[in-house]
């Protein structure tokens, strides 16, 4: 259902708006390195990647529609 998909996408929007925002960012906003990457840098790109993956998954469901 298209409406169902819109709701999921809206959910993605709010979820990642939260994840890419304060106060969560303060947790990773440090000069330390995680796996050789600055923590904020790593966090940003991983969340970003997850978001793209999430959108792609939701959009793909279209094929099931008649």
């Amino acid at each position: 259902m298209a409406d169902d998909k819109s709701t999921k996408l809206l959910f993605i929007f709010f979820l990642f708006l939260l994840l890419l925002n304060y106060p969560l960012l303060t947790i990773v906003d440090k000069t330390q390195l995680w796996f050789g990457f600055p923590s904020l840098y790593l966090y940003m790109f991983v969340v970003w990647g997850l978001m793209i993956f999430g959108i792609a998954q939701i959009v793909k469901q279209r094929k099931k529609k008649p």
């Binding site: 996408l9 809206l10 929007f13 970003w48």
Partner: peptide, 16 residues
Amino acid sequence: LGVYLGPTLLAPLWFV
């Protein structure tokens, strides 16, 4: 990065 995360955040809403 904000300049590119903004459009990414909006992307799910494009559908509507």
